[in-house]
């Protein structure tokens, strides 16, 4: 658990962060979102003491971070940044094994862990272990960056716009991957981004920051339904909010169970997955110019239908 109590950071006389209080529960994925210069990165870097806070208290599992040695503290937290920061003169395997080596694990244990992590992140060990960072694509490099952050199995993961420099398709893949990892690993993650769509997709809880202060925090649904002010509203994309919300809701929540008698008649309808978003369903309707879709389960079996008027109901 990470607790920030009335934390401020002054650069000269400028308040980069101004008295923020925030609790990130264990296993929670908390996204700090805001425009550039709002203090979100500074907040992140204060948690692992790359930047020292000027006032207030930061606690990890109830203990003040000042009571730890900074290096020891940082080795206990994973850290991934936008440009990956991979060491260009080290192979992929050596990069991933960095923190375990700092923690003086045995070479055999490091090697085992590195292989495990590469497999976890979909990097074929035989192919990638000996490659140099310059030989990797942006997406591969960021996977290595995440693997390196996870290397010593830290409870806490700090991520500073890790997918910001990737193309949209790769970014989406890695976001899905992060959600998949998180459902398995249940780390306490603080994730910084300026991209509200990314925040809505990933977050258990979103913390909106502006000019060093927290403007609003809550679940993605809370933010969409009750934005605290115009700033949050504009971050959410104003009139686009309907689509953003549809993007957060699964088809399963609004679909009608399949009437076996009608199954034959509706066999020609375009299909949508039960786990896909309403946004995708809407898009399919617009594209195919039809008013209803067949909903299929993961194994492709028809399980229900979704009609346009279903979309207008409020999710239960």
């Amino acid at each position: 658990m990470i607790e920030l109590r009335e934390v401020s950071k002054l650069f000269g006389r400028e308040h980069a962060v101004d008295g923020i209080s925030l609790t990130v529960a264990s296993g929670e994925l908390c996204v700090l979102v805001g425009t550039s210069g709002c203090g979100k990165s500074t907040t992140l870097r204060m948690i692992n003491r790359l930047i020292e806070h000027s006032a207030g208290q930061i606690l990890i599992d109830g203990q003040q971070i000042r009571s730890f040695n900074g290096q020891v503290l940082r080795r206990r937290m994973g850290y991934a940044i936008q440009s990956t920061g991979l060491f260009p003169h080290w192979s992929v395997a050596r990069n991933i094994g960095l923190v375990p080596r700092l923690l003086k694990w045995t070479p055999a244990r490091i090697e085992e862990r590195v292989t495990e992590l590469m497999e976890l992140l979909g990097l074929e060990p035989a192919t990638f272990a000996d490659k140099m960072p310059a030989q990797l694509s942006g997406g591969q490099a960021q996977r290595v960056g995440v693997a390196r952050a996870l290397a010593a199995d830290p409870d806490i993961l700090l991520m500073d716009e890790p997918f910001g420099a990737l193309d949209p398709i790769t970014r989406e893949t890695l976001q899905d991957e992060l959600l998949r990892l998180q459902s398995r690993l249940r780390k306490t993650i603080v994730f910084v981004t300026h991209d509200m769509d990314e925040a809505l997709k990933l977050a258990d809880r979103i913390v909106v920051m502006n000019q060093g202060r927290i403007v609003q925090q809550g679940t993605p649904q809370t933010l969409l339904h009750e934005p605290a002010d115009e700033f949050v509203e504009s971050l959410l994309g104003g009139a686009d909010r309907g689509l953003k919300q549809a993007g957060l809701t699964r088809v399963a929540t609004l679909m009608q169970p399949l009437d076996p008698a009608q199954a034959k008649a509706k066999a020609d309808l375009p299909t949508v997955g039960v786990d896909d978003s309403l946004r995708l369903a809407l898009s399919l309707m617009l594209w195919h110019r039809c008013e209803s879709l067949m909903v299929t389960s993961e194994d492709g079996q028809p399980v229900g239908t979704l009609a346009f008027h279903d979309l207008l109901r409020t999710a239960p």
Binding site: Q71, V72, R74, R75, Q82, T84, G85, F87, H89
Partner: peptide
Amino acid sequence: PDVIESARGMGMSPWQVFSQVRLPL
């Protein structure tokens, strides 16, 4: 600078950052 930043972020000591990252690069 991002390489140095991540080296520090991983918990390398100032001497480790210098001898293992800055100097070789």
